[in-house]
Design a protein around this nucleic acid. Sequence first.
DNA 1: GGGCCCGCAGGG
DNA 2: CCCTGCGGGCCC
Length: 524
Amino acid sequence: MDILLQTPCGHNFCLKCFQKWVALKKFTCVKCCRAIPRKMANNPRINDSLVAAIRLARVSKSAAPRGNAKVYHFISNQNRPDQAFTTERAKRTGKANAASGKIYVTIPPDHFGPIPAENDPIRNQGVLVGEFWADRLDCRQWGAHFLHVAGIAGQADYGAQSVTLSGGYADDEDHGEWFLYTGSGGRDLSGNKRTNKVQSYDQTFTKSNEALRHSCKMGYPVRVVRSHKEKRSAYAPGEKGVRYDGVYRIEKCWRKVGIQGKYKVCRYLFVRCDNEPAPWTSDEHGDPPSDLPNIPELKKATDLFERKDTETPSWGFDESEGRWKWMKAPPASRKSVEALDPEERRSIKRAIKAAQNNSVRDKLLKGFSCPICREVMNAPVTTPCGHNFCKGCLEGKFAGVAHVRDRSRGGRTLRSQKNVMKCPCCPTDISEFLQNPQLITISSSSVNTEVMSVIEALKEKVEEPAPEEEGGESSGNTSEENMEFEGGSMESEEEESQMVGSEDEPPTKKMKLDAEQGAATASV
DNA sequence: GGGCCCGCAGGG
DNA sequence: CCCTGCGGGCCC
């Protein structure tokens, strides 16, 4: 089931069930009959904390695969600094005008499909579903989507490798396991604009739109990243950042008149086909093949294109193995790999390690800390606006604050006025939520039990004697359930032997490092 | 929160 | 070389 959403009364629902319920004009919780906030009913969003919890549990369960790293070619990549930088030429500093940092993975820009462990020599784990970056430049460095602004990565005569869902096109329609995507173009970008919401001519199947159609025809896997900027989708990350959600296949494409009513847009039906479960589901498995969804707008479609039944898609489901794989050889890359040399790899690895804080406690703090006490959440509660706090902290914050303000001034009594109580993290008024009797009386049902159980499980690990960070080999897998985190203890390797020495010497372009920006944490 | 503007990276 | 593009920071 999809564990996705939590009502203010503390009950979790699968998004699809929630949507069905709300569609029946029922605006009260099935379990306790309390009111469902209007905003949540109209625009439900997945609960990032739950997503983070699911992912953390998943990643910690499966030790990252460790293969032998292979590096293929060396190009100018090593001249780039580790992080985004602004060049001498740029008049303004900051990431808005930044150039990309090094590419960490050893795939060419026209690589199709998931990014496997052997192309991730720094961490040896590949790019995992649910991986999260602060912005598009960081995302690019891990190869999930190479373009900084454009949404479609691809070449007209060759295919599209990845797309991003960022809310740039009103016609997009996201259902998680499948979505309808809109082509690019048809807009007036004169006057040095990068984007423009208004369509002013028809889109055509050329350039990147044709690249998508080519991927459809061949049945290639297309990597998909979702951005927080997609506000209408229930499946997009909530607060900030960009998330890798796995590969999808384009099953059909067509054109139709866009939502703006005048001009045609290109349309694509994407269906998920990844061996890893989607970030928002608690399922243990990836996507089994399923029937295509019914698309009402196809009635009005023109230029419909579907992959022929006779032609086996390049990326397909192997029934005997029970997983998706290349049924035909993936297209040979026409570009070279931008790889790092081994020394740089080591220095980046060190930096990533340092930034990641590998201890379980640090992971916990990072993913599940309470914004008020800065400690790992104790009895987490989720506000209607999606922020998480210790139950105690939230109560404490508003302790002694009256819910209503008495307005009587001397003479006659006026009706008392409601006090606005702002969420400590955003301007939302949560006074109604705070009045929820289940929150006031100590009752576990208002606590986010899903998140709490993950935290409890992880906390137990902390109690265990922590395996020495580098004290020779992992060895001490005393309990086989031992939670192993990415890049965790079993590193050994030469690492420390040559500490300093390889400060990346300034590249040809002078740069002002902006950004330290700290590794993206799951927004809580 | 909306509009503006910028530099970059990729395609052709 | 020029054109295009579902960013990101800042100003209002």
